[in-house]
């Protein structure tokens, strides 16, 4: 079973040279650590940065320079700063090539829920609804099974949804999935040491398994 860094490592393999990439808070942020050498990408932060760099060295942090997670960051050479309307403008206009974000639930038709638990947790959607409604290429990084042992890959989302039929690829601690246009989670790869049976028991929605499913390669 993959830990958070394992999920990030696997997703990083989907990041290709020349991409503009938006990373959500949590596991998606970790993906930046595993981008293969020689792959040249530009990170977008939706509060208004293209060309976001790593955290600053101790003592160099600047309260005027943060990312969308409100963390102090740095700028790489060739970066640009802009306002929030332009930031979401470039997202809606599909200039951003890849969006990686977290989820609480995904349904077999590609609906995603990640912004609200009624009566309990209400933090807001931030930029998630804009991103999922517009991005052409979204990968969800999530825990497939919660602490109570319940699957979060569902026939239908139980929580208020963030977007409809927008998720096409999911990476979890157990596997990699495509969401099929006709509905269903197609198993593409298994996490090291995880059986198809284990994955079947951990998927509440429709699971599609065709032939031998390879183990994912992480090095």
């Amino acid at each position: 079973m993959l830990d958070k860094d394992g999920i990030a490592k696997r997703i990083a393999q989907e990041i290709k040279d020349g991409m503009y990439v938006n990373l959500g808070i949590g596991i998606p942020t970790l993906c930046a650590n595993y981008v293969p050498k020689g792959v040249d990408i530009v990170l977008q932060s939706e509060n208004g940065i293209l060309g976001m760099g790593p955290f600053p060295f101790e003592g160099d942090e600047d309260p005027d320079l943060i990312n969308a997670g409100k963390q102090t960051v740095t700028l790489l050479k060739g970066s640009a700063i802009f306002d929030s309307a332009m930031s979401f403008g470039m997202i809606r206009a599909q200039k951003v090539d890849l969006t990686i974000l977290g989820a609480m639930e995904v349904s077999e038709n590609g609906d995603i829920a990640n912004w609200k638990i009624p009566g309990k947790m209400v933090k807001g959607m931030g930029g998630a609804m804009d991103l999922v409604a517009s991005a052409k290429n979204i990968i969800v990084a999530m825990q497939q099974v919660n602490k109570a042992g319940e699957s979060k890959l569902l026939p239908k989302c139980t929580l208020p949804i963030t977007g409809v039929r927008c998720i096409k690829k999911i990476v979890t601690e157990l596997g990699v999935y495509d969401v099929l246009p006709q509905g269903g989670f197609k198993l593409l790869e298994r996490a090291p040491g995880i059986s198809v049976d284990h994955i079947r028991k951990s998927t509440a929605g429709k699971l599609v398994v065709e032939g031998e499913v390879p183990e994912m390669k992480l090095d």
């Binding site: 060295f57 101790e58 997670g69 102090t72 960051v73």
Partner: peptide, 12 residues
Amino acid sequence: QKRIEQRTVRKK
């Protein structure tokens, strides 16, 4: 005051 919400840094 310019408070920082999430002070994230690297070691030098």
